[in-house]
Design a protein around this nucleic acid. Structure first.
Lengths: 348, 348
DNA sequence: GTGAAAGCGCTAACAT
DNA sequence: ATGTTAGCGCTTTCAC
């Protein structure tokens, strides 16, 4: 590969001048010289040796990205959002998947620091982050879609309260007053956030909540089924069920149908996350979609800002999701949103 | 961060000796000295400066991974397989997603070469690879799950012929003689491979194929629906339909049901790919699963071999998939494989 | 078995 | 506006 020295030799100037031009320095160079150098660089296909540059500047144009679970339905989209911004700014990402169980953060972070990464992104991480900053060699970092309890001003997270309130308000607007809730695994930060928003929204609307309207599952279809069965046995039968995710909602759907009831006629159901399952079930499930790509972009932009200016202000950034109205809530606008009809309609 | 110099100073030896120990060189160093150095390195948390090492050795411990579509159902699993092997061998990966439309391979490859990547992995790439080797600066490379027509000895690909024959033979074993076929988009390499295997297997079994038993779709549910409608109008009604992927199979399923027929009683259906849809439909769809994680691992191991020994032999490696028997084929062992029953059974 | 020193390609401080 | 040069941390050749 071509080096500065070669370009300098061909262009008949010193390597310092070539460096000034090709490293986008703001050091003054005469237009003619600049152009000549640019031409030679183009001709020989010059590409800077990042190792040499990195050794000198202690910056690598590399960003470490650490995630819990690469194969989750969220991670790939978030990563694409991150890369979309970062690649356009000349950065490469070192993406590493570390299953939560075998997490030994130190090792990976240490290795990444050996590669002189300029900053870190943590995606969907759950791990305790006490003293993170020192471990990270005081490099900038940002957390996207944080799943653990500890608050961190460097986080970009879904606005769980807003999103959860979104579905509850949607049901209220449809006239429901007796709304039950299936919560997710209590280990998750998002689980309590979503539940709290349901409680708050119901109270703000002035509707009482029966104790046996609330069941706690573990995010799975199976537990959604079991929770819905318990709710159906409540003293006062609810007219709608809000589930903390689409798996739970789908399980609830099956349980309600198996109980000989109809969705949404007898019981309305709404989910959360816009999982594939919610668009393929029968009836299709009304849910909330998270703007994952956007979250990745925002995270990357946040990081770039940190990289450019020494001290910026930090505060958790909450990104709102969007309601997707389908059949399971009974709203008129979702009535026809089911896969087979969509298929038929567009197949003529 | 600690440097060789510091470790050498503390240990009271020269940096050369420290380097010999800490870079796993096979140069002889006395056991006592070695141990002393190792201890100091541990104490100060030494981590080699990869930029300096890379500058010197022209090797970076970085592998460039280029893919078409990060968010495909295959890519993340393949990548995890790749990383599983590579990380254990001390490599980091530079993963870059380049949508096919805006592919300008040269730029990314060029940038990666600037980072001195030791080798390349192409995942699900479609792009022409003529003269790839020179462009890659003669560095090792491997292609996983290749989607284009040109053959390349550096490929790790699913054994499409074997897999496709797997489902056809499965139907033959169940007694089907009149088997129709819905092919995928003809632009894809895998499409013709799968179709050919169907044709070959049927002929080898001695069964004639009617011209109107074969329809060509574009991988989508919608086109599966349309293709099945055409097949149902054939002069001789088939007893089974093989679809080139699960989307087509699901579309066919809907069409058969809409025609007032039953699956698998009247028409058996099988898919390919083990997409989520095939485990969630009703009936669930018999299909073939691709060993994606394994493919990634094999690809990475192949690459490591190239990195270690100068000349190794190359030949396309075909990785066989596995048949997943569910309800849509009518086989007894798949009879009970449906989501709701599974749910009930395990819910007690 | 160990140490001294050259040099990888680049940037930046300093000189002109 | 341009050139000269030191030195980033490491590996490796050569000397002892």
């Amino acid at each position: 590969m071509a080096t500065l020295k070669e370009v300098a030799h061909i262009a008949g100037v010193s390597i310092a001048t070539v460096s000034r031009v090709l490293s986008n320095s703001d050091y003054p160079v005469s237009p003619q010289t600049r152009e000549a150098i640019l031409k030679v660089a183009e001709d020989v296909g010059y590409s800077p040796n990042r190792a040499a540059r990195s050794l000198r500047t202690e910056r690598s144009s590399l960003i470490g990205v650490i995630l819990d679970n690469f194969s989750s339905q969220w991670a790939p989209i978030i990563i694409r959002g991150i890369q979309d911004v970062l690649h356009n700014s000349g950065y490469f990402t070192l993406v590493v998947n570390i299953p939560w169980e075998k997490y030994s953060q130190t090792d990976v972070v240490q290795d990444m620091l050996g590669h002189s990464v300029d900053a870190f992104v943590f995606v969907e991480t759950w791990h305790p982050v006490s003293e993170r900053r020192e471990m990270l060699n005081n490099r900038p970092y940002v957390i996207v879609h944080r799943l653990f309890h500890q608050s961190d001003p460097h986080s970009i997270i879904p606005d769980e309260a807003h999103n959860s309130a979104l579905v509850v308000k949607h049901l209220l607007k449809l006239g429901h007053k007796k709304i039950a809730y299936i919560a997710g695994d209590s280990d998750y930060f998002s689980s309590s956030q979503r539940l709290d928003a349901y409680l708050y929204t119901m109270r703000a609307a002035g509707f009482a909540i029966q104790a046996d309207w609330i069941a706690r599952g573990d995010w799975s279809i199976r537990s959604g089924y079991a929770c819905a069965q318990r709710i159906l046995a409540a003293d006062i039968m609810p007219s709608a069920i809000v589930a903390a995710n689409d798996g739970l909602a789908y399980g609830a759907l099956l349980a309600v149908i198996d109980a000989g009831l109809s969705v949404p006629a007898d019981i309305a159901i709404v989910g959360y996350d816009n999982n594939d399952i919610s668009s393929m079930s029968n009836p299709t499930i009304t849910t909330v979609t998270l703007p994952l790509f956007l979250m990745g972009q925002v995270a990357a932009e946040n990081l770039l800002r940190q990289l450019q200016t020494d001290d910026c202000e930090f505060a958790e950034q909450l990104i709102p999701g969007q309601l997707i109205v389908r059949q399971s809530c009974g709203a008129p606008e979702g009535k026809d949103v089911y896969a087979r009809d969509y298929l038929r309609a567009t197949m003529e």
